[in-house]
């Protein structure tokens, strides 16, 4: 086995995602990403840490979603709770990541609908949830409040906090005991700075995950890959401000030219390949949760992680 560098004494902290009945929630499973003491998929000591998790991304207004996914999936995308259930039962995802794209509509003010969507998805799937709230600072506070409240006790992962726009999401997370996605633009120092800002307003380190921002393959992925490696390595060397597990999503994968312009016969396969290559490489660089949008990418990633991971898989005793 590889020699651990002598200067590696750090450990990635744990974050609790989802809460089972025993933990005060209603999820059928909960996860504890974190705990790694060595480079991804290596290590000398009995595979400390956690296998990367696969999150399937859905949304509550498919008008804002990739036509590749909506045409592959069909009518299901208009039934958000059922879409979430399918992600769990049929695609085999570990988590569901819900984007509240309905809030992108101009002049959105139907806040009760958020509570309704949240309740629907929570009853549709027993998996832990990642919830992406509004895209509009003016309605952040109301949207995140609704998400947090609807998911009370469920240990959601709420996103997304950015420098200059993190108070609403952090406030909702702290009020209802959820965790936060902290996103910075492909820069290790900005990632660290944001974590410190969040800590200073009272969010605990075990309630944060780092999103270093992931460019899609061929469109900046190399920068994201290296920033992930740097963050992971800095944490292993003992920088506790960077020792949170990472969540990554190459969200542009399905809209880059190579995928968008592919012929109908190969379009789905190309979409899956672009998602798979970026997501697996992100896990190799240190990401604990990788997120994808094409249903066919999920089982491929799960199979790859099962093959590469010598430790326990989620759900295994």
């Amino acid at each position: 086995m590889a020699e651990k560098s002598p200067d590696m004494g750090g450990k990635i902290g744990y974050v609790l995602l989802g809460a089972t009945k025993a933990e005060g929630g209603t999820r059928s499973v909960s996860y504890h990403p974190g705990g790694e003491t060595d480079l991804p998929f290596t290590g000398m000591k009995a595979w400390e840490g956690s296998v990367p998790l696969v999150a399937f991304e859905i949304c509550d207004d498919p008008g804002y979603w990739s036509p590749i996914v909506t045409s592959y999936t069909g009518d299901l995308v208009s039934d958000t709770p059922e879409w979430a259930r399918t992600a769990e039962k049929q695609y085999g995802a570990d988590l569901v990541r819900l984007y509240l794209t309905s809030t992108k509509r101009r002049g959105f003010d139907d806040f009760p609908s958020i509570t309704k969507v949240m309740e629907g998805v929570l009853s549709g799937t027993g998996l832990p949830l990642v919830v992406e709230g509004s895209n509009e600072p003016a309605i952040d506070s109301e949207v995140f409040q609704r998400c947090g409240e609807a998911g009370q006790g469920e240990r959601l992962l709420l996103g997304t906090a950015e420098a200059g726009r993190y108070r609403s999401v952090a406030a909702a997370a702290m009020a209802y005991n959820h965790s936060v996605v902290a996103q910075s633009p492909i820069d290790i120092n900005l990632a660290k700075q944001l974590n410190i800002l969040l800590r200073e307003i009272g969010l605990k380190a075990d309630h944060m995950m780092i999103d270093p921002y992931t460019g899609s393959l061929g469109y900046g992925f190399e920068y994201s890959y290296s920033v992930m490696e740097r963050i992971r390595y800095a944490a292993l060397k003992g920088d506790t401000d960077l020792a949170m597990p990472m969540i990554t999503s190459a969200t542009d994968s399905l809209s880059v030219k190579e995928v968008r312009d592919a012929g109908p016969a190969v379009r789905d396969d190309i979409a899956v390949a672009w998602e798979f290559y970026a997501a697996l490489s992100s896990a190799v660089a240190g990401s604990s949760i990788v997120c994808v949008r094409h249903p066919k990418t999920v089982p491929l990633l799960k199979q790859a992680f099962r093959e590469l991971w010598a430790g326990k898989m989620p759900g295994e005793a």
Binding site: L217, E222, A273, Y277
Partner: peptide, 20 residues
């Protein structure tokens, strides 16, 4: 490699071997 993953594989190789 099938056509679907050919470009993805070559693009990943190009990404990793780009001088940062």
């Amino acid at each position: 490699l099938p056509p679907a993953s050919s470009v993805a594989a070559l693009t990943l190789r190009q990404n990793i071997y780009t001088d940062p």
